[in-house]
Design a protein around this nucleic acid. Structure first.
Length: 216
DNA sequence: AAGTGACT
DNA sequence: GAGG
């Protein structure tokens, strides 16, 4: 007999609260996956995933690219948004309609109607790739939320407070999960533990994350 | 430190 | 040695 627990675990679009204005939308991106995957390939063909340098001179373990009007970049001189991909001095690929649609509906579902992202950072994690605790604070205004989409391998997301030293909650994110945080929770520290575990049936030994922002 | 390694 |  099917347990209630199992049913709840598999229920689509379950909303899990992480804070006053922060949610995990379980499986919210699943209906979009068939459009998202070819779009990722297209974006990467124009602006390939690459590992960037931090201001401290280290190479990030995560490889990134961007789509949309603005792209997040980092090098020895700092973090910033740029209209131009520094790798070939051309604009970033346009944001596909399926991306915008996913971001807007997820934001609305979490209580942020009329989200208009102008930037989408795509991060590619391979086994052992991590993202240490940080705040998203290079955007021009912080009134818009952050929408973060997980595809591929399962990862452990860390969601902290407004000081780096605040204790963090560990949230396991699966293929198709979407995290949205804004308002009071907009500046919370967050990160990803080193990637480990089983390969994903569709994407193999990697996790792709999109993060939508209103940057400009 | 959008890193690491040291440390618990 | 694993883990936060």
């Amino acid at each position: 007999m099917t347990s209630l627990y199992l049913f709840e675990e598999l229920a689509p679009n379950e909303r899990e609260r992480l804070g006053d204005q922060a949610y995990v939308l379980r499986g919210f991106a699943l209906p979009f996956v068939n459009e998202l995957l070819p779009a990722i390939t297209q974006i990467a063909s124009l602006s390939p995933f690459r590992q960037m340098q931090t201001p401290g001179g280290y190479t990030m373990s995560v490889a990134l690219t961007n789509c949309g009007k603005l792209g997040w970049v980092t090098d020895r001189s700092g973090y910033r948004y740029s209209r131009i991909d520094p790798q070939h001095s051309q604009p970033w690929p346009a944001m596909p309609q399926s991306f915008t649609q996913l971001a807007r509906t997820a934001a609305a579902e979490a209580g942020f109607p009329d989200f208009e992202p102008d930037a989408c950072l795509l991060n590619r994690y391979l086994p052992s790739s991590r993202m240490s605790l940080h705040q998203d604070k290079n955007e021009r205004d912080f009134s818009a939320p952050i929408v973060s989409v997980s595809l591929g391998m399962t990862a452990t997301f860390l969601f902290g407070g407004h000081q780096r030293s605040d204790r963090t909650a560990k949230v396991v994110l699966h293929h198709g999960d979407v995290v949205v945080w804004g308002g009071l929770d907009r500046m919370r520290y967050h990160g990803i533990m080193p990637l480990k575990g089983l390969a994903h049936p569709l994407l193999g030994e990697q996790r792709i994350n999109f993060t939508f922002r209103k940057a400009g």
